[in-house]
Computed example of a mutant assay.
Amino acid sequence: MDINAVLKERQKWFEWKNIKPIHLKLEKFKNENLKVKNIKIDDVIEILIEENQEKLNEIEEIAKMMKPWRKGPFKINDLFIDTEWRSYIKWNIIKPYLNLENKDVLDVGCNNGYYMFRMLEMNPKSITGFDPSALFNLQFEFINKFIKSNIEYKLLGVEHIPFYEKKFDTIFCLGVLYHRPDPVTMLKELKAGLNPNSEVILDTLIIEGEEETALCPVRYQKMKNVYFIPTLKALYNWIEKAKFKDIEFIGKKYTDLEEQRKTEWIEGESLNNFLTEDLSKTIEGYPPPLRVYLKLKN
């Protein structure tokens, strides 16, 4: 597979009618000189700039053009981008298990780059993000205009990892596995991107149970692109089939309305629309979303 040819073809995505106006606006904005006073990388990524109200209004206009904002939150002066997910809840679960110092890191399905920005404080050698979404790429470029990081963002997916020129010491794969029709093949693709003695940080949906089995829904939380949700034992079997050497259990957590909810920064529905009124099941009658966090060692 010619990755450069794939990337060149995907540049055309910025010409889509729903993307082009945002892209043109952002390209003009990126050429402007901004007086950034302070950047605080924490649960809320805070950016403080010294600009007039007209410029602040323009920044708000661009941010609102980019809805929906899924991962975050971000704050630019008084503008609070209250994203659908409070992503720091997940980050704070996995953070104690990370050592990214001087490592080459890949985040697959990186969305707008929230987690990659959080990685900066750990001083990795390099950070690369893969996500085949033109909108999320523009959100990343918007935030990175202020932060000015050296993060590389590629319009690629997990299937491109084996053909990518670079190998990595740590690969993050957060919330992707259940969207793939062949989970074992995907795990092998992740492994193919690793240097020797490296690791994958995996977050995925599971169901409770002692059996080595998986749920195969037509829809799950109204999503049509959910293929398999395994028990933990079944997930471990998939990981073994992909030939990882070891698994470290980090934790598990039910997704709740503290972590994911509808805000003015998204369009459409969120978690409370996907569950029954008492939040005990999905609207399809399946168990509610339970996530497991693992470290897979190569």
Results as ranks from 00 to 15, higher is better:
1 M>Y: 13
1 M>F: 11
2 D>T: 03
11 Q>L: 12
13 W>T: 12
14 F>H: 08
15 E>L: 15
17 K>A: 04
17 K>I: 09
19 I>Y: 10
23 H>I: 05
26 L>K: 00
32 E>A: 12
33 N>W: 09
36 V>M: 11
37 K>H: 07
40 K>Y: 09
42 D>S: 14
45 I>G: 08
49 I>W: 12
58 E>D: 12
61 E>S: 15
61 E>Q: 15
64 K>W: 09
66 M>Y: 01
67 K>F: 01
79 L>V: 01
84 E>A: 15
84 E>G: 05
85 W>E: 11
85 W>H: 06
85 W>C: 07
86 R>C: 09
87 S>N: 12
87 S>K: 08
90 K>D: 05
95 K>N: 11
99 N>C: 11
102 N>I: 02
106 L>K: 01
108 V>W: 00
111 N>I: 04
112 N>V: 06
119 M>Y: 15
125 K>F: 13
126 S>A: 07
128 T>R: 08
129 G>Y: 01
131 D>W: 05
131 D>Y: 05
135 L>G: 07
141 E>N: 13
141 E>V: 08
142 F>D: 14
152 E>W: 06
154 K>P: 08
154 K>C: 11
154 K>W: 04
156 L>P: 03
159 E>M: 05
162 P>W: 10
167 K>Q: 09
182 D>T: 13
187 L>T: 01
189 E>D: 15
195 N>F: 06
196 P>E: 12
196 P>F: 10
196 P>D: 08
199 E>H: 04
201 I>A: 06
202 L>T: 01
203 D>N: 13
204 T>F: 00
205 L>N: 06
205 L>W: 04
210 E>Q: 13
211 E>Q: 12
212 E>F: 08
222 K>N: 12
222 K>I: 13
224 K>Q: 12
224 K>G: 11
226 V>I: 15
229 I>S: 08
230 P>C: 06
233 K>R: 13
236 Y>D: 13
239 I>V: 15
240 E>H: 14
242 A>V: 05
243 K>R: 13
243 K>M: 09
244 F>M: 03
247 I>H: 09
249 F>R: 09
249 F>S: 06
250 I>Y: 07
250 I>D: 14
250 I>Q: 14
250 I>S: 09
254 Y>A: 14
255 T>H: 07
258 E>P: 07
261 R>P: 05
265 W>P: 02
266 I>R: 02
272 N>C: 10
272 N>K: 14
273 N>C: 09
273 N>Q: 12
275 L>S: 03
276 T>P: 02
278 D>N: 02
280 S>L: 02
280 S>I: 01
281 K>M: 01
284 E>A: 04
287 P>F: 00
288 P>M: 03
290 L>K: 02
295 K>M: 01
298 N>L: 04
